[in-house]
Design a protein around this nucleic acid. Structure first.
Length: 775
RNA sequence: GGCCCCGUAGUCUAGUGGCAAAACGACUCGUUUACACCGAGUAGUCAGGAGUUCGAUUCUCUUCGGGGCCACCA
């Protein structure tokens, strides 16, 4: 038969599933619930191959659990709240958010999202992700806003959220505070300049990569053990150009090996400066503006230009001792790529630093797949140095729902019934002093909402889904954000872990490299599905391991395509001759085949239970391809064509049940072709309207004998030997032979010898030393 | 600097304290009553060293190589 056309077939079943609501969560069912905290992808133009793989992988599990009798709660959300969306809209519409009022920009965002989201989500449907798309949320929709604000207020009341005004991680491009989790390392080349300070009438050399911060210099640190500078401790140094005096302090933080051993403290060059200022109680001088400029007279320029000018001035005044190019690593904001600054701004935090131990304990209660991902979670917590910054100075996001009374310094939270609310849109008066209150203008960071996906999703089903969810699937790069934050919120709000299990997926790379638009090495899932079908794509995804980045292998897709073709052909053969048999007295070979099937069902099932879809797939496929197609079908052909009524009945029964089982075992991986086969051939005998809501295969009850495996294996061994002999003799597989078997084999194989004889086209089977001779 | 993962055929991956496996590729054949998007067969592999063990690809240590997370980053 010609290769099958997957495109229309897949489209057909997609429509059928949607129309018949095959994947609907049943609110009234008494079945056990398996709940999945689906990752909401960030809305962008098109689904990425990494998405295609990781969502396929979680879908294998969802489908397996559905067939295993669970009521699947598998919602679908999109994350379209916050900076990434703001950036996307700016790009799509060619506008700048800061040119809009908050209200206007939000409505532009919402309008644009409405246009682009359906097509974006279609990508998930097209590869057969079996979410209940009626359980849909967006992290910016009214319901999400309400929940996010409500929980914010609850936390605020319980004292776990606080507002503080201190130096924080600041991105000058987006002009907003950012969280520790949003930082990335970037190696860059800088000029490392040694500058002449004056102290005690002598030159005090100080090396820096940030000379533009000279006007913000507050102190000089030297190591108390450093003999070079010991006598300077307690004295003052003069800052070049600006000629102000700053104290020289002893601090072990000054590393004698680095630079000149003397270190200037400025407000603020990096995190150490922040700590130093706090520790020594130095009065900060803030010279960096929110948009990344220096505000010192004569140097009112963007940071880099100010640096150049100050270096020029230093050079002109002969204040530079030496300059060298150095490579060093700096923190940049992951979304802008710009270096992070530290600016004192008012912002909101969720307390986490004092809960590290508890958070680690929570992590231990969750089953991580693979296990070692838990270490990454712990590692992150160990390294935390800041509370979780949740406020952003942006337009598009969920507003922080409160007002400040400047007159009496009182905070007025929104009332629960007012939510969701934008405080900017509503006038409030202080309930203490009666003065007009100022609305809080900051918005919540997107993670502050997406960390509530369990609560948001549950609200779509009348809050029927309780923590912990059964499963959280996600990628490893967001352990420190999404996983971590969700665990934080679940602990604070419900004193629970958010999920029992979490499966962590890896990335898909190409030639060992991360795919990116800038490199132009993107593989589009759509291109694969159009060429080879969604089943093939999913099949390839089933070959890549949890937790590990794996290279995109076209051969896996091709193998998937081959499988699809093979199973449809095998089904065609089986049903070409088959008369349905409810029961049959089993021929010995058939009984043995079904034993092998039972074993496969066992191992595939337990592999799926452990989220090992790779093994489940290969067990099912091995049985199908090797045992069933290559051997059993060949063995049984003779009986199907020429057998007695009883022999045929046994064969039909076995063919039907083993093919049905294999089709079901593969249904989670390749849902389209298995549905096609089910509907085309099995549906008239089976009651369920889709294979995907049919029951997971159970072992067929059979009589067992001790020697079963031995008989089956010996049988295959003989068949293989015969094939080998024919191949080596360059003869046709149908070449007649005479088989000679020792007496022990005659005894062992007595009941299956007729099948052996026909499959190897033996004219007769003699007794004696093992041999295969050509006639 | 701390922690973690990985190293198996030409390629990409399974796997186990006791015969090293599949797929793709290569090579040699075959085939028309499921399938040339096919079938059969052949060749080819545990990074190096040490230890534990009757026995190590598997466990331990170590070297080398690849990757990741975190910290540092004057």
């Amino acid at each position: 038969m010609a290769p099958i056309e997957t495109k229309n077939l897949e489209k057909h079943w997609l429509n059928y599933w949607e129309k018949e609501k095959i994947y609907s969560f049943d609110r009234n069912s008494k079945k056990k619930i398996f709940s999945i905290d689906t990752p909401p992808p960030t809305v962008s133009g098109e689904m990425h191959i990494g998405h295609a793989y990781s969502y396929s992988q979680q879908d294998f599990i969802a489908r397996f659990k559905r067939m295993s009798g669970f009521n699947i709660f598998y919602p679908f959300g999109t994350d379209d709240n916050g900076l990434p969306t703001e950036k996307l809209i700016q790009k799509l519409k060619g506008v700048k958010s800061k040119d809009f009022s908050r209200e206007d920009f939000i409505s532009l965002c919402l309008k644009t999202l409405k246009e682009i989201t359906p097509e974006f989500v279609q990508g998930w449907k097209d590869i057969g992700i079996s979410c209940d798309y009626d359980l849909y949320y967006s992290t910016i929709d009214g319901n999400s806003r309400k929940i996010s604000q409500k929980i914010f207020l609850e936390l605020y009341k319980s004292g776990l959220i606080y507002k503080a005004d201190f130096p924080t991680l600041w991105d000058t491009e987006f002009q907003t505070p950012v969280a520790q989790a949003e930082l990335e390392d970037k190696e860059k080349e800088s000029l490392f300049t040694t500058i002449k300070f004056q102290a005690d009438g002598k030159i005090l050399p100080i090396a820096t990569t940030r000379p533009e911060l000279l006007p913000a210099c507050l102190a000089i640190f030297v190591n108390p053990k450093d003999k070079r500078y010991k006598q300077l401790i307690g004295k003052q140094a003069t800052v070049p150009i600006f000629n102000n005096k700053v104290p020289i302090l002893a601090d072990t933080h000054a590393d004698m090996e680095k630079g000149t051993g003397a270190l200037m403290i400025c407000s603020y060059g990096d995190k150490n400066d922040v700590e130093a200022v706090k520790k020594h109680n130095l009065p900060p001088k803030i010279i960096i503006t929110k948009d990344g400029k220096i505000n010192v007279p004569g140097y009112e320029l963007p940071i880099k230009e100010a640096r150049a000018r100050i270096l020029e001035d230093l050079k002109n005044r002969d204040l530079i001792i030496k300059q060298e190019r150095v490579k060093h690593v700096t923190n940049v904001y992951e979304k802008s790529g710009k270096e992070i600054e530290f600016l004192p701004v008012e912002q909101w935090f969720i307390k986490i630093l004092d809960k590290k131990k508890k958070l680690i304990e929570q992590g231990k209660k969750i089953n991580w797949y693979p296990e070692h991902m838990q270490k990454r979670y712990e590692n992150w917590i160990h390294g935390l140095e800041w509370d979780w910054s949740i406020s952003r100075e942006r337009h598009f996001g969920i507003p922080i729902p409160l007002w400040h009374c400047k007159a009496c310094n009182h905070v007025i939270p929104a009332k629960p019934e007012e939510l969701p609310i934008d405080p900017v849109q509503k006038e409030k008066f202080c309930n203490k002093c009666g003065a007009k209150a100022e609305p809080e203008t900051k918005v919540l960071d997107t993670w502050a909402t997406s960390s509530l996906t369990p609560q948001i999703a549950s609200s779509l089903a009348n809050n029927k889904i309780k923590l912990p969810y059964s499963l959280r699937p996600q990628a490893h790069d967001i352990i420190r954000t999404w996983a971590f934050y969700t665990i934080v919120r679940s602990l604070y709000h419900e004193n629970k872990i958010p999920w029992k299990d979490t499966i962590i997926s890896g990335f898909v790379t190409l030639g060992g490299e991360k795919m990116s638009k800038s490199k132009g090495n993107i593989i589009r899932p759509k291109a694969i599905t159009e060429e080879s079908g969604a089943d093939s794509l999913r099949y390839a995804a089933a070959a890549s391991k949890l937790g590990e980045d794996s290279d995109y292998q076209e051969k896996d897709v091709i193998t998937g395509k081959r499988f699809v073709n093979k199973i449809i052909n095998a089904s065609n053969f089986v049903f070409m001759n088959l008369k349905h048999q409810k029961k049959a007295k089993l021929h010995e070979t058939d009984r043995l085949l079904l034993q092998q099937l039972n074993r496969t069902i066992d191992s595939a099932t337990s592999a799926f239970e452990e989220y090992n879809y790779i093994k489940a797939k290969s067990e099912a496929e091995n049985f199908f391809w090797k045992t069933f197609a290559d051997n059993y079908l060949e063995i049984v052909k003779n009986r199907v064509y020429n057998g007695t009524k009883k022999e045929k009945e046994s064969a039909f029964y076995t063919l039907y049940n083993s093919l049905l089982a294999v089709t079901k075992l593969m249904a989670p991986i390749t849902p389209f072709i298995t549905e096609e086969i089910y509907q085309q051939h099995f549906r008239k005998y089976e009651k369920e309207k889709s294979i995907h809501v049919s029951s997971w295969p159970k072992k067929i009850s059979l009589s067992k004998r001790k020697e079963d495996d031995k008989v089956w294996n010996r049988m295959i061994e003989i068949i293989t030997a015969a094939r080998q002999a024919k191949s080596e003799a360059k003869k046709s597989m149908k070449a007649p032979v005479v088989l000679t078997l020792p007496k022990s084999d005659h005894k062992l194989l007595a009941k299956v010898l007729d099948d052996v004889k026909s499959v190897i086209t033996a004219q007769e089977i003699k007794e004696g030393n093992f041999s295969i001779e050509f006639v």
